[in-house]
């Protein structure tokens, strides 16, 4: 079978696709943190002397909203740098 596709190449190819798809999760924190920043600016406008509290709450909420974007980043990094699927395939091959 001359066009036998090398299994390892296929896994690498699909890992690249998977890493790319994982980063789509970045849309969420983008929209959410933008909304938080907007509301934060509006809040500081309404109550300037409470500015430090407002900024603290806004930053805290924005950082909490960051986490799912970080999850996507971590899965993408795992797929790119430390690909467990390749090592699993290698184990299966030489078993």
């Amino acid at each position: 079978m001359e066009n036998q596709i090398d299994g390892r190449a296929l896994i690498l190819a699909c890992s690249a696709i998977g890493a790319g798809l994982a980063m789509i999760a970045g849309i969420g924190p983008g929209i959410g943190q933008g909304f938080a920043a907007g509301k934060g600016a509006e809040a500081v406008g309404r109550q300037p002397n409470a500015q430090s509290d407002i900024v603290r709450t806004m930053l805290l909420g924005a950082a909490v909203a960051e986490t799912t974007g970080i999850y996507g980043l971590i899965v993408a990094i795992i797929l790119l740098f430390a690909n467990p699927l390749i090592s699993r395939y290698m184990d299966l091959l030489n078993k």
Binding site: V64, T67, I70, Y71, L73, I74, I77
Partner: peptide, 15 residues
């Protein structure tokens, strides 16, 4: 979520 938030941000910066 606590550990991945700190880890993800710092690792991202390092990379």
């Amino acid at each position: 979520s606590l550990s991945f938030r700190l880890f993800g941000n710092i690792l991202g910066g390092t990379i």
